[in-house]
Design a protein around this nucleic acid. Sequence first.
RNA 1: GGAGAGAUGGCAGAGUGGUCGAAUGCGCCGGUUUUGAAAACCGGAGUGGGGGCAACCCCACCGGGGGUUCGAAUCCCUCUCUCUCCGCCA
Length: 443
Amino acid sequence: MLDAKYFGEAVSELEAALKRRNGDSQLVAHIAELSKLRRTLISQTDSLKAKRNQASQEIGQLKAKAKSDPAAAAEAERRMVETRSLGDEIKATDQRLAEVDAEFTDLGLRIPNIPQASVPSGAGAEENVEVRRWGTPRAFDFEPLDHVALGEKLRVLDFDRAGKLSGARFSVYFGAGATLERALIQFMLDLHTRQHGYQEVIPPFMVNRASMTGTGQLPKFEEDLFKTGTADRELFLIPTSEVPLTNLFRDEIVEPGRLPLYLTAYSPCFRSEAGSYGKDTRGLIRQHQFQKVELVKIVEPEHSNEELEKMTAHAERVLQLLGLPYRTMLLCTGDMGFSAAKTYDIEVWLPAQKAYREISSCSNCEDFQARRAQIRYRPEAQAKPRLAHTLNGSGLAVGRTFIAILENYQDAQGRVEIPEVLHRYVEGAPGFLRDGARIWMTP
RNA sequence: GGAGAGAUGGCAGAGUGGUCGAAUGCGCCGGUUUUGAAAACCGGAGUGGGGGCAACCCCACCGGGGGUUCGAAUCCCUCUCUCUCCGCCA
């Protein structure tokens, strides 16, 4: 995988990608130049090799005759010596080609996906466009606490002890907190597998470099990842289960009739959060380790946009069932992730911050990841394989959903009501009190 | 952790230095036969890149990478993965 040839045909697209996303015209020119040089070198080595191959074949024929014909043996010797220099020439040209290929591939891997035409141009989050809003933020007749204060009061979150164990940006959930987090995971997985048609997967939480490259985390964002492994083996902790789920079909040709593939997985996610110093340092919002239920689709190109709408609706459904107000934003070019061609962020209302905060991000990556990971499908028997389109979305970030429930469902005494859809998951667990038709987490 | 055996086309499975891109079987596609089908028989067929109006031609690919050689599926090094036996382990 990840051969320069995969980018060969995509050069003009790569140029377009750069232009629309703060493009660097020098880089574009450089890429075009490299591409040309690559083609020249390829045709050079090819014709040298053709000559060499023919000579070898003729030497073989001479050798076969040599038993009965001493003149043929001498001729074979002569040709062998003569052909030696051709070999050196091939070696030199091949090496130059390898260098050009390496640079070309590396550049190709560092260029982001092209935004779709429907994506608004913009520099940053301020220029994202709100496409819809659901629910009305509740009016409080007291000053709502944030989830950190609530969590400590309820004794379900402990950041100090997490600091002792691992340092900043880690957390410990205790008792009813741990149960609620687990209930949310279960609820989301049940919803997506039973009502939305996703297949549940438990993937590896550590993956190799090829997988990280396939989905676009590498080579450009290595500092965002936790790297591990043993002396002779390199592994990365997944920043999202999008990585293992999408890479499941890396280097495969999916047989006719199997698309669309709908996959969902719960996983812990590990992010170094390099470059976010000072941002969201309080509480659960931005952690080195958090839980997420992920949605991934592998689909035919013709349907990817309609599948993106459906996937976004599936993620929104979680918030609707939990009764949490949210808005959905169409990200502008400047705020989109590296691999995405179009992205919707879903933002949940957090009363303590009096703001909508991201809780899900749903993207159509089109063939960007499929090209890197060589995920192809056969439209019908005997047909030529085509690159598939891949999509991913959070369905949802569990920790942030936990925050939203604490903050939106608190009462003046610091109790938190549990939304009805979660009752069956927490009923009877320690730390939850039933009061008529309602269940509460209480201090 | 120790010892050993492997990785070849959709699958099974030959091939240990010279027309091997690769025998054979199954499967697949086309045809003959048949009312239709099966069987039988005949024929075809890998992937990617480049060139040519075209018939065709060239390059690469036998797990990945490197080496030896005029020439490598075949020899050497290395990595990955799989299997068997022993040890350990949730």
